[in-house]
Design a protein around this nucleic acid. Structure first.
Length: 199
DNA sequence: GAACGGATTTTCT
DNA sequence: GAAAATCCGTTCC
């Protein structure tokens, strides 16, 4: 994964991440899933973003250089993982923008994913069909906040296999900026957490 | 298959 | 003190 690819507006990066593989090489083995659902969070432009009101101890990774992972705890229980975007450098802060990874199509390491997801996972599509599930399946937690996914380390992102069709729709689970169409998913993939409503 | 409540960290009022 | 970028077990169709 080239860092320049991520050094853009998250609304441009997010659909381009669909079809890329998220890879985690753990001591036990390699886990891999294809990214099939993402959301963009746009810093000061986005009341729903953690970074809307500026840096805090939790969100400081999002103001750093692109290509790092912002991992935070959601509802006190789950972990959620974002890929930092924008034009930050080690010397100067970025825009506080990122892409939330919401769902994966499991490819490798499914046995380990079932173990870490517990008894609620009955089928492959239960493994990573949501941001909290995704982190559990990939063994990503708070210790991975700030890791560089562009450096060829144990957590990395592989090149995209371009999806046949992409759906753009509104984000999920928000109470602010609910109408912004900043979620994208791979049309027809069974691992997508929720389909776009068709009124 | 849909609908509800509980778990529990970080932030803000 | 309350709400939040969620998930799961239970309950009722």
């Amino acid at each position: 994964m080239d860092r320049e690819f991520l050094a853009r507006d998250p609304r441009a990066v997010a659909p381009d991440l669909l079809g890329c593989d998220l890879i985690h090489q753990t001591g036990q083995g390699l886990r891999r899933g294809r990214i099939v659902e993402v959301e963009a969070y746009c810093g000061a432009d986005d009341p729903a973003a953690h970074t809307y009101r500026g840096p805090t101890p939790r969100n400081r990774t999002m103001f750093g250089p692109p290509g790092h992972l912002y991992v935070y705890r959601s509802y006190g229980i789950h972990w959620c993982a974002n890929v930092v975007c924008g034009t930050g450098t080690p010397a100067s802060p970025g825009e506080g923008v990122a892409v939330l990874l919401r769902a994966l199509h499991p490819i490798d390491g499914l046995d380990a994913m079932y173990v870490d997801r517990g008894r609620a996972a009955r089928r492959d599509r239960d493994l990573a069909s949501g941001p909290g599930k995704l982190c559990a399946a990939m063994a990503i937690d708070g210790s991975h906040d700030g890791v560089d996914v562009c450096a060829g380390g144990p957590v990395r992102i592989g090149p995209a296999e371009r999806p046949a069709a992409i759906v753009q729709t509104t984000r999920i689970g928000l109470t602010k900026a609910v109408d912004e169409p900043w979620r994208w998913y791979v049309d027809g993939d069974p691992n997508v957490s929720r389909l776009a409503s068709t009124p």
